[in-house]
Design a protein around this nucleic acid. Structure first.
Lengths: 229, 229
DNA sequence: TGAACCTGTGATAAAGCTGTGATAATGAGG
DNA sequence: CCTCATTATCACAGCTTTATCACAGGTTCA
């Protein structure tokens, strides 16, 4: 299991690295955004721990931007480190695709817990996708959905999150609120947005969007993926 | 078996939810205390997993207070999640009526063990979603009722609550007031509404709605599910 | 017998939910 | 700067769900 630690603060980076190594991780470091992207390509880590507060030496490459770049080209989970307790930061972090955040100061134990939690979650989700719900499969790297016997369709970030989450529980109905919370984060979405998102996803993956066969609706409750796709 | 997970940390809530779902639970989430109380009334879960460290957005509604409110109005078991190892917290947790606590960080296995221990202690059977009574079965996920030898019928939210409650005590008569309180909450329904609801449910599930064989009426008292369906 | 009460039934109106289309805001890339 | 893709917001039709009113038939009991 390989981790990439991105932080300009050498001391903090060393603490994080030490903590992770003790847990059996192989660790690579980077001191700024540019180096991070370079080592990301070279090392292919399994997870990135990223300080949002990077030096301004390289303009326009703060933590959020780096996170965004990472997410554009891969699906490697990212955990953000932030001193600010400003909720905007966290929301923005999720917006650029972060998987979790840890507020500084943090205890080593806390960090390890988050890292393992995220890895477990990602592991779970890829497992689900490999299981292939019915005639559906999804490639999170390319963000492409594949319906049996048709061309692959590329999905947007939100569509991917929705599909991925639905595929975690094929045959089960997920509550509207549950989906909203998971896709947009707490307090970040409403039912209207969810409806539109489901609609767009259906347009892309349903053979006949007018009569959905993959994503089923339970009025007043939520949506789910049909098992007999 | 339905669980309510209350946590403002989306990631943690998702982990807990995933873990429980994998064990066959139906899971609902809430992001703060207010939502928790609302969904508690709506969803009637069998157990609550509650993070004591809730956001201060709603003042005076931290985890302990929420726990207290829950215990005031119902007997649903509550498990507290706490980061603090402070023994006072635990003591205080028990004081407001918690049934057990789990210290963060925890492993999924650990959580499941606690949940099942508490449920066993309370005397609930940890059975799968679909409930059965005689020739009747009900899928709360889809809100579909299945009468032996016929097509599944989809029920509305209220109809589901009624049927679910009746199925909890097959062969017993439940008081009108009891049913009303349980379905609409205290002070929320009247006998007329109940009559209509029973009527609509009968229309859907009774082979011959004019001569009910499943739901029996005891004049002046209430309704019940016949055991010899 | 007749009043009070209860139940089943029907009809109707208000409220809510979903799918749909159109349109603005937002952000990325040339 | 402009253009395109993505996302958010608004409005609306059709349907379902729910609450409310009205009424007939049955039972109980004084």
């Amino acid at each position: 299991m390989k981790a990439l630690v991105v932080d300009d603060d050498r001391v903090l980076a060393d603490i994080v690295s030490f903590t992770l190594r003790r847990e059996g991780f192989q660790v690579v470091q980077a001191g700024d955004g540019e180096a991070a992207l370079k080592r990301l390509a070279e090392e292919q880590p399994d997870i990135v721990i990223l300080d949002v507060n990077l030096p301004k030496a390289v303009p326009a490459l703060d933590g959020f931007t780096v996170c965004q770049r990472i997410r554009e080209k891969s699906n490697i989970p990212v955990i953000l480190l932030t001193v600010r307790e400003d909720e905007d930061d966290i929301v923005y972090g999720f917006k650029v695709g972060a998987d979790d955040y840890v507020l500084k100061p943090f205890s080593p134990r806390q960090l390890v817990a988050r890292v393992q939690a995220v890895l477990r979650r990602v592991g779970a989700s890829t497992e689900a996708h490999s299981k292939q719900a019915g005639s559906l499969s999804f490639d999170p790297d390319r963000r492409e959905a594949l319906v049996e016997g048709r061309e692959p369709v590329s999905l947007t970030a939100l569509e991917s999150r929705l599909l991925e989450y639905l595929m975690l529980y094929p045959g089960h109905i997920l509550t509207n609120q549950d989906l909203i919370d998971h896709i947009w984060g707490p307090g970040g979405g409403d039912r209207d947005m969810l409806r539109q998102l489901v609609r767009r996803l259906r347009m892309k993956i349903e053979p006949d969007p007018a009569q959905p066969s993959l994503i089923e609706t339970v009025a007043g409750r939520g949506y789910g993926l049909r098992k007999t796709g």
